[in-house]
Write a protein that binds this DNA or RNA. Structure first.
Length: 502
RNA sequence: GCCGCCUUAGCUCAGUUGGUUAGAGCGCUAGAUUGUGGAUCUAGAGGUCCCCGGUUCGAGACCGGGAGGCGGUACCA
């Protein structure tokens, strides 16, 4: 027995946390991006494209005291040994761009950006290591006018992306109010920075873990379902009460209270003001949100809610913060309810450009997580609508290929997606191919049709429908359902007519 | 990163206390029904039983390590 020599065969597999996409999904994303971009442009934002890689120091992702980049970013060393990293968001490259071109730019600088970003972290359901973001930012405007505009833009963009009004809410908070809370409970000192960070991390989980979970995290700690224990912050009970009261302070839109949120928003802010007014940060944070709330146009009032339980970018945002949340529910393929949560975020970051220039450049922006939004809409609407396949022209006679291609060319010239079958199989296989491609029509011209100067236009969708009623093959073939003979010269006209019926 | 569960054909999964040529359904390929998708019938291809090592006369099954997947959790610009 001779054994075949072992040839090395790499396993064909997509890298962990990445994925391939085909057809309908790409088209759906492209359309969504086009709609979002159109809104951004209509607000006066210009598109900006920056490279996938940035120098790691420009992204600010070197680990402290170590000569290596943070694990969370994909990094490599250039041939001159400089570290470069794939961008993990679109804001850091913007800050670099603005700093690099500062003097040439008209300020405020308004730009939007669309593209993939990469994060080297554990993938989860609906969470990949490459995904698409779609951002708009205004650089060089202090609060609150730009912030109010961002909130409205955010609402308009989510709606343009395909989420009907009422199925989402833009939640707004302000980092300064949280600072006020820390002042109030005596955690504003220099030495309490770590504690503040941990408190905010716990608050950020309010959504997922609820009040009881957050109480546990703020106090002694929490044991999760897998038995793993998370160490708590260890706050005094009275301070835990303050934090929880703060988280639950939002006065939600209530049918009994009226149709819009602004009333509820004012109520929320008055409530907070009464508690935090004596703290300088709290006071100015409340004032900013009140100013934003006053500038919201009527048409967006139902979509923008003051809610102090959102945290976001812990060490990053300096003022107002926003989060877009979907509020509808859908079932996954196993029939379990899914909550989507955040499909975008943003806020004011007055410190980012300062890293480069040494001068404070106030900026505010939003970021839409297009991939998550698409996944959510797909679950809600059922599977992505299949892309309509091309009209398939069967290739039945080898020496007639030129004419088949001519038919395709005529159809394309008339704006019809069309292709000639190029596989070299028999009649039945060719129709099967057309079926699988989702072709609405097949064009048939064999010897007989050609002799008569005709082609057959076969409606595959109708044919499939009719076939359900037939269970005998002879009968099925005899009937040759859903096809009509037309003059070759009338091909385009007949195809367009047939397509128009769909 | 940490905890738990899982990994057998393209897909969904069987596989006895460790025993010879590892199975099913669906899908796929080819053929039949004179040049027509579906249905039916016939035939066929397709497996490193995730990988490496160990125990054993013998491992898909048992043990150790690794990888990948799923679910929590931590981190998250």
């Amino acid at each position: 027995m001779t054994k075949k020599a072992k040839t090395f065969r790499p396993k064909a597999r997509v890298p962990r946390g990445f994925r391939d996409r085909l057809g309908a999904e790409i088209i759906a994303e492209r359309e969504m991006l086009a709609r979002i971009s159109a809104v951004y442009e209509s607000y006066g934002f210009d598109p900006l494209e920056t490279p996938a890689f940035e120098y790691t120091d420009a992204l600010g992702k070197f680990l402290p005291d170590v000569d290596r980049p943070n694990q969370g970013v994909f990094s490599l060393q250039d041939d001159d040994e400089q570290w470069m990293s794939l961008r993990y968001d679109l804001t850091a490259p913007l800050a670099r761009y603005v700093a690099e071109n500062y003097d040439a730019l008209a300020k405020p600088f308004r730009r939007y950006a669309v593209g993939p970003v990469w994060r080297n972290e554990k993938p989860g359901p609906g969470r990949y290591r490459q995904f698409t973001q779609c951002d708009a930012d205004t650089v060089g405007t202090p609060a609150p006018h730009a912030d109010a505009e961002m909130c409205m833009l955010f609402a308009e963009v989510i709606e343009a992306a395909g989420v009907p009004a009422g199925d989402f809410v833009i939640r707004v908070s302000n980092r300064k109010i949280i600072d006020g809370l820390f002042e109030k409970i005596g955690l504003a000192g220099e030495g309490d920075a770590a504690t503040r960070l941990n408190v905010m991390r716990s608050m950020d989980k309010f959504d997922r873990l609820g009040e009881a979970g957050v109480r546990a995290l703020l106090g002694p700690g929490r044991k999760d379902e897998s038995g793993d224990f998370t160490k708590g912050v260890g706050l005094a009970d009275s301070n835990i009460e303050s934090v929880v009261a703060f988280l639950t302070s939002a006065v939600l839109k209530d049918k009994a209270k009226g149709p819009t949120l602004t009333g509820a928003n004012e109520e929320t802010l008055n409530k907070i003001a009464s508690v935090l007014n004596e703290t300088p940060s709290g006071r100015s944070g409340v004032d900013e949100l009140m100013a934003i709330n006053r500038q919201i146009l009527d048409k967006y009032k139902g979509a923008i809610a003051i809610d102090l339980s959102i945290i976001r970018g812990l060490e990053y945002y300096t003022g107002p913060v926003f989060e877009a949340d979907l509020t509808f529910e859908a079932l996954d393929e196993k029939g379990r309810p899914v909550r989507f949560g955040s499909v975008g975020g943003g806020g004011r970051y007055d410190g980012l450009v300062e890293r480069f220039k040494g001068i404070e450049v106030p900026a505010v922006g939003i970021s839409v997580g297009v991939s998550r939004l698409l996944a959510a809409l797909e679950l809600k609407r059922g599977a992505a609508t299949a892309v309509a396949g091309p009209v398939v022209i069967l290739a039945l006679e080898n020496d007639q290929m030129a004419d088949y291609q001519a038919m395709a060319a005529e159809l394309r010239a008339a704006g019809v997606r069309a292709e000639v079958y190029l596989g070299g199989s028999n009649f039945a296989k060719q129709l099967k191919y057309a079926d699988k491609r989702g072709a609405p029509l097949a064009i048939i011209q064999g010897e007989d049709e050609r002799a008569k100067g005709e082609v057959k236009v076969k409606d595959l969708v109708l044919g499939a429908e009719l076939s359900k009623k037939i269970d005998d093959n002879a009968q099925w073939r005899e009937a040759q359902p859903a096809q009509t003979s037309v003059k070759r010269a009338n091909l385009v006209e007949e195809v367009k007519r047939a397509l128009a019926r769909k």
